[in-house]
């Protein structure tokens, strides 16, 4: 079984990483986190990119479920969609705690009588 060699699967396996694996997109997420929902115009300010360029990056983030755009009058405001990241992290914390408990039981078992 070599599922990691299957390109379709590989692609589907890391949408969050793919979306965040770019300096511009990471900065966009950080700015939305620090300053809350913002327009494209504001997000473009201070970057060397055009509005179209920023929009393209926001779409990649949106496809991964990390941000969402909402129409407000004549322009879109973009905001963080934190659910996905939170779910991913809290889920891992949960599994991680279970491993901690299991490894403690393993430790008790193997150290018993061999100390």
């Amino acid at each position: 079984m070599t599922p990691d060699r299957d390109p379709a699967r590989l692609e589907s396996s890391a949408p969050i990483f793919a979306a965040l694996g770019d300096a511009t997109r990471l900065k966009l997420v950080a700015r939305l986190c620090q300053s809350g929902p913002q327009s494209i115009a504001r997000l473009t300010r201070g970057t060397p990119l055009t509005r179209q360029g920023i929009t393209k990056h926001l779409r990649v983030l949106a496809d991964a479920g990390l941000v969402r755009g909402r129409r407000l009058g004549r322009e879109s405001r973009w905001e963080l969609e934190p659910q996905q990241l939170i779910v991913a992290h809290r889920y891992l914390d949960l599994i991680s705690k279970r491993w901690d408990a299991a490894l403690r039981r393993l430790q008790e078992l193997v150290e018993e009588g061999s100390a």
């Binding site: 699967r9 396996s13 890391a14 934190p82 991913a88 809290r90 889920y91 949960l94």
Partner: peptide, 27 residues
């Protein structure tokens, strides 16, 4: 884990934690 459907991960959390109060802290 990134390949595990997000809905599955959310279900596991819901089964294990009642609330979602710490969401913003986590992000």
């Amino acid at each position: 884990f990134d390949a595990i459907p997000l809905a599955r991960r959310a279900d596991a959390l819901k089964a294990n934690e009642g609330g979602w109060a710490e969401q913003m802290v986590a992000i």
